[in-house]
């Protein structure tokens, strides 16, 4: 199956089931059951689950276009998290629960993305993975406008039995999922912004004819392509969550997010600031995901420590050997 054959039906599904009106409704506390049911019925949630356990047995690199599509359509549910969680649970032979699952790494006092629309959290603490029902936790809205993130107080003595993470780096997987979603949202923003620049007339011609804006849009395009390539590098790291690849993905995506979102707004003028206009659906997400699961400095530091631990290698050799290659030969 080509990437397009995998991704095109998913795009069509999301276009139909998750238009901006549905995104807004869910973000303002509306019911998300219908959207979830459609996604669940599509079978995509088990894309990463081994074939022996009834999944599609795909790799993270293979589903990179799906993870990006989730950002492109501003899907207000933890679909990527659930895909990853279901694969990790299936590997242990465990029972995969129904409903959305969010991924959480470490003590996680920061807002947990998508917690408001999830049933379970798969949490990694001290090398142990545990599946926790969010209803058993103390939860409070993060208070970010329109955000589905929550502040979660984890139970002192987790009732659920855990299993060893055995090499799975959940923080890295979260970073990869967010970076891929950011790449998708960035691509959508680029399209919207270029289209707007060609439509909006000022001084008797489209604003996109102004060289000042053309140069800004060119930079935005560079950043969007860099985000996508970095996300591909992250996905190539696979479910084992190679930290170096994840760090590349999240460092690049988080650093680019500000430039991409700011340029989109600059070109749109005041209309982009209004709630009613769709731009905010994507720029708000870029800013949230930029910080979620570690921002650009956090991931630069993690990558830098790996780099310094291999100081005898040249940079080219480090990249060749530590950051998994992507794509087809």
């Amino acid at each position: 199956m080509t990437r397009e054959e995998l991704a095109d039906p998913f795009h069509r599904l999301l276009e139909g089931a998750c238009p901006p009106a549905v995104v807004r409704a869910i973000e303002s506390g509306g019911d998300w059951g219908d959207l979830w049911a459609e996604i669940e019925a599509s079978g995509y949630l088990d894309a990463l689950v081994p074939e022996a356990s009834g999944g599609a047995g795909l790799t993270l690199a293979e589903i990179a276009p799906l993870l990006m599509a989730l950002g492109r359509h501003a899907v207000p549910l933890p679909v990527a998290d659930t895909m990853i969680a279901r694969a990790l649970i299936a590997r242990t032979g465990g029972e995969r629960p129904d409903g959305p699952i969010v991924l959480v790494a470490g003590a996680a006092s920061a807002p947990v993305a998508f917690a408001a629309v999830a049933v379970h959290a798969l949490i990694e603490q001290g090398g142990v993975l545990r599946l926790i029902r969010l209803n058993d936790c103390a939860r409070a809205p993060s208070g970010d406008p329109g955000s589905l993130a929550e502040l979660v107080g984890w139970p002192e003595a987790p009732g659920a039995t855990g299993w060893p993470a055995s090499g799975v780096d959940l923080a890295a997987l979260i970073a990869i999922a967010r970076a891929a979603a950011m790449a998708g949202a960035g691509d959508r923003l680029l399209e919207m912004t270029v289209a707007y620049a060609n439509e909006r007339i000022q001084f008797g011609k489209p604003i996109g004819k102004q060289q000042a804006l053309q140069q800004q849009l060119a930079v935005m395009a560079e950043q969007v392509v860099a985000m996508r390539m970095a996300a591909e590098i992250g996905c190539a790291a696979g479910l084992e969550g190679n930290a170096a690849g994840a760090a590349v993905a999240k460092r690049i995506a988080s650093a680019a997010a500000v430039i991409v979102a700011d340029t989109a707004h600059a070109v749109h003028g005041a209309i982009g600031i209004s709630e009613e206009y769709d731009l905010q659906l994507y720029t708000r997400r870029l800013r949230q995901w930029r910080l979620a699961g570690g921002g650009e400095t956090y991931w630069a530091q993690r990558l830098g420590r790996l780099r310094l631990a291999a100081a005898s290698l040249t940079s080219v050799d480090f990249v060749r050997t530590h950051i998994t290659a992507t794509g087809t030969a």
């Binding site: 860099a226 390539m229 970095a230 591909e232 590098i233 760090a247 590349v248 460092r251 690049i252 650009e296 400095t297 991931w299 630069a300 530091q301 993690r302 990558l303 830098g304 420590r305 790996l306 780099r307 310094l308 940079s315 080219v316 480090f318 990249v319 950051i323 992507t326």
Partner: peptide, 16 residues
């Protein structure tokens, strides 16, 4: 570490 990581991330992405 942040500078080393920043440069490495950019090299990896540009190389790709």
């Amino acid at each position: 570490a942040a500078l080393a990581g920043r440069m490495t991330a950019e090299i990896a992405t540009l190389r790709a």
